[in-house]
Simulated assay, not measured.
Amino acid sequence: MRKHQELSLEQIIEQVRLDKFSSDDFCLYGREDGELALDRLYWVSDYPDVVEDRDVYPTDVVEQDLQLVYYGEQLFDVLSVALEEKPDASPQDLIEALKYYQEHDTFLPFDN
């Protein structure tokens, strides 16, 4: 995924769905309270660096006063598992899977 751009979560999901082998070397940052929504815009940037056991966020993230919303690796994992279990998952299904993972640190089981 190309970094240093603002995308809606729906655009990000669609990009992941179309290109499953894309790099997960990015993080999503947002201005909001962290609540995920399809039409909300998120900034795609680098992972924070860890310096002396503290996260040091990328300059573009700090300058915009953004908060970490999702690590790219976790986002890819959650979407991949959800799409494997439910290939015809709607964007809203995928949002629910992402929210579930944030809350429970485990994958949302889709009942077939």
Rank of each mutant, 00 (worst) to 15 (best):
Tyr57Phe: 15
Ile95Phe: 04
Pro58Gln: 11
Phe76Trp: 07
Pro58His: 03
Asp19Tyr: 10
Ser80Met: 02
Phe21Lys: 14
Ser22Val: 12
Tyr100Ala: 01
Phe107Glu: 09
Ser22Phe: 01
Ile12Cys: 02
Gly30Leu: 07
Phe110Gln: 09
Arg31Thr: 13
Ala37Lys: 11
Ser45Pro: 02
Asp49Ile: 05
Ser23His: 04
Phe21Ser: 13
Val69Cys: 10
Phe26Lys: 06
Gly34Asp: 10
Ser8Gly: 02
Pro91Val: 07
Asp88Lys: 11
Glu73Leu: 10
Val81Met: 05
Leu18Lys: 15
Val51Leu: 12
Gln15Cys: 04
Tyr71Cys: 03
Gln64Glu: 13
Tyr47Leu: 01
Leu83Trp: 08
Asp93Ala: 05
Arg54Lys: 15
Glu32Arg: 14
Ser23Met: 06
Val62Ile: 13
Tyr42Asn: 08
Asp77Phe: 06
Arg2Glu: 09
Ala82Glu: 04
Val51Gln: 14
Leu68Phe: 05
Tyr29Ile: 09
Val69Ser: 01
Pro48Gly: 07
Gln74Ser: 14
Gln67Val: 04
Val78Arg: 02
Leu66Gly: 07
Cys27Trp: 00
Val69Lys: 00
Leu28Met: 11
Glu63Trp: 05
Gly30Val: 06
Ile12Lys: 03
Leu66His: 10
Glu52Phe: 11
Glu52Leu: 13
Gln92His: 12
Leu66Ala: 04
Glu96Arg: 15
Tyr70Ser: 01
Glu96Asn: 13
Ile13His: 03
Asp53Arg: 14
His104Pro: 03
Tyr57Pro: 01
His4Val: 00
Ile95Leu: 15
Gln11Ser: 12
Ile95Gly: 01
Gln67Gly: 07
Thr106Leu: 09
Arg2His: 10
Val81Ser: 02
Tyr42Ser: 02
Gly72Lys: 02
Gln67His: 14
Phe21Arg: 12
Lys20Arg: 15
Asn112Glu: 13
Val61Ser: 07
Val16Ala: 07
Asp24Val: 07
Val62Ser: 11
Glu73Val: 15
Ser45His: 03
Ser90Pro: 04
Glu84Val: 07
Asp39Trp: 04
Lys86Met: 13
Ala89Trp: 10
Tyr101Ser: 10
Leu83Tyr: 03
His104Tyr: 13
Asp93Ser: 08
Arg31Gln: 13
Glu103Asp: 11
Gln15Asp: 09
Asp88Leu: 12
Arg54Ile: 04
Glu103Phe: 10
Tyr29Asn: 03
Met1Ala: 05
Leu108Trp: 06
Val44Glu: 02
Glu52Asn: 15
Glu14Leu: 11
Asp65Cys: 12
His104Thr: 08
Asp111Met: 09
Asp77Pro: 00
Gln64Trp: 06
Ser8Glu: 04
Asp19Phe: 07
Tyr57Asp: 02
Val16Ile: 15
Asp53Tyr: 14
